[in-house]
């Protein structure tokens, strides 16, 4: 303690104050500039963020009647989670959630396994590799939106209309995910593969025991993209599913809105429950998330 006091003696303190004053003088202009930037960003931020604020404000309003009578108030008064509870009574929410979870899980597993296998093949030199690469590039140029009608007929032929599998199948391999994995696998040094082969490693071991542990960012991209695509999918489930018990959450939300048209608060509460997983995922994995979602959509 005494040595600590000795360190921060008067002269030291004076030096510190001097330094601070110097810093202030030099950077005062910069400080003003930064404040201006901050003010502009805040102003725009308020405009951009307002819908989210409103979403939460309305969702926690109870009773909902005070939203319609007279002037709406902009502040949050007497927040209540009642609307969130009410959603469970209005619709079979767990059922819809389960549908979404099943679809997302199948999509993630499908992408991890199928894409890894395909990427593994593409790291090898084999007969017809050029052709496969061409097929992948061509398939990327065919937007799924422009194949929905025959894709529905294909699903019908396969007997997969009104099934979870029917929703997942077109999402079970995403080409950009394969390309991300190929790039990652090819970066693995040849020497590591050679030594694994000398140890008698099987092809599957090389894929899942050597390539996988060295390709975590690429695998994360696979998981994130298939999660986002499957969780947000709307048009395709709308076409393939007519049985309400099989609807994933986005479809349930759209129907909910028409069903409870007058009840803003209830619909907003449901919206929050649908949106939350992706938002939480984004906040937890910001950098990886932005890289996956934005950078891959550029390459597409």
């Amino acid at each position: 303690m005494s040595t600590f006091n000795g360190l921060v003696d008067r002269s030291g303190l004076r030096m510190l104050v001097g330094k601070l004053a110097f810093w202030r003088a030099r950077d005062r202009a910069e400080l003003v500039e930064q404040s201006v930037y901050f003010a502009i960003a805040s102003l725009l931020g308020v405009v951009f963020f307002f819908p989210f604020y409103w979403l939460v404000k309305v969702a926690v309003s109870w009773p909902p009647t005070n939203l319609y009578s007279g002037q709406p108030s902009l502040g949050i008064e007497n927040p209540s989670y009642y609307n969130f509870v009410e959603v469970f009574f209005a619709i079979p929410f767990p059922q819809f959630l389960l549908n979404s979870v099943v679809i997302v899980s199948l999509a993630i597993v499908g992408n991890l396994v199928f894409n890894s296998l395909a990427a593994y093949a593409l790291t090898m030199d084999f007969h017809g590799k050029r052709g496969v690469q061409l097929v992948l590039i061509t398939a990327m140029m065919i937007p799924f939106q422009t194949t929905i009608i025959p894709a529905f007929l294909v699903t019908n032929e396969l007997g997969l209309v009104n099934t979870h599998l029917g929703i997942v199948l077109p999402l079970a391999t995403i080409i950009i995910n394969i390309l991300v994995l190929v790039a990652s696998f090819e970066a693995v040094p040849e020497s590591i593969l050679e030594s694994a082969r000398l140890d008698g490693a099987s092809e599957l071991y090389i894929l899942f025991g050597v390539y996988w542990p060295l390709s975590k960012p690429a695998l994360a991209t696979n998981v994130i993209l298939s999660f986002v695509f499957a969780w947000n999918a709307f048009l395709w489930p709308l076409i393939v599913v007519s049985d309400r018990a099989l609807e994933p959450l986005p479809l349930a939300l759209a129907n909910f809105q028409t069903q409870f048209q007058g009840n803003f608060a209830l619909t907003y509460a449901f919206s929050i429950m649908v949106v939350l997983p992706i938002v939480v995922m984004f906040l937890l994995l910001q950098r990886q998330f932005i890289e996956s979602v934005v950078m891959t959509s550029i390459k597409q």
């Binding site: 395909a118 084999f126 007969h127 017809g128 398939a139 194949t147 294909v154 077109p170 391999t173």
Partner: peptide, 30 residues
Amino acid sequence: RGRRSVIAWLALVPTLTILILYRFVPLGWN
């Protein structure tokens, strides 16, 4: 190289099946 080709094509089966079913067949069918 022939052995490798067999393995590669086997590994590509799921992906190619899905792409053919949901991209190329629909394109022609449309």
